[in-house]
Amino acid sequence: MFYIRLFATYLRIGILGELEYRANFWISLVQSALDLCVALGGLAVVFNHTDTLGGWRQEELLALVGVYFLIGGLIRTIIRPSMTKFMDDVRQGTLDFTLTKPADSQVLVSIQSIEIWRLVDVLIALPVLGIALLRLGARLGLLDTAVFAVTLLSGALIIYSFWLMLSTCAFWFVKVENIQVIFMSMWQAGRWPVSIYPAWLRAVLTFLVPVAFATTVPASAVSGRITDASLVGTVALAVAMLLVSRWFWRVGIRFYSGASA
């Protein structure tokens, strides 16, 4: 409850801060539109020359694009700005303020900066997803919807845990914010179903950088091609990564305060 109220406060501050820079709304809109151009343009060029890609039809890939934008919006709205601020704080020593606060430092760090306009990505994702579903002619039953929601949530948690672990490295290395660059470039590989990649790259995108779980898995849930095994696996991984990232965060904090060094 306390943390929900805290989140609401940060959200309010996020809105206030962004209102100061109203131009950001337009900038975000342009950026999201550009992203959509890349995604749809890429699809258009590819499907100009083929009917299916690795067994996925164009509508199914459109659904994938929708999921990609939905999770991408979450990353851009909360995860990335918060983690960026965290890394800045480590570098400038202002993390000390966070650590002297009587609240869980991981939570504080994870929600401390919210770029509200980035929700534009989510606004774009919804119609894309809707159109894809219409064209698929799919009728989502209650169960399908639940499975989709569960995979989506798991995907989001996996991505969050992953970012947290990457960011935690800031305790040891300078300039890790570049990791974001690499993540975002890996992330774009998630616009395509991971099944088309060669095995080693698929492994990278599944386990090293868990892009597959956040995009391909929910998209396969919505297009009715998910297996029970991958559903269970995704949920299990989400729980595991949440725990591991929590543990790693504590290790990082201990290192930062010179406890275990």
């Binding site: 805290l6 406060t9 206030l16 202002t94 000390d96």
Partner: peptide
């Protein structure tokens, strides 16, 4: 710490207060 600050840059001071209130 005189050399570092925790006020949020873009928003009014009173909102930093509010945040502080929530955290504490």
């Amino acid at each position: 710490m005189g050399q570092r600050n925790q006020l949020l840059w873009d928003i009014p001071v009173v909102d930093t207060f509010e945040l502080h209130r929530a955290v504490y």
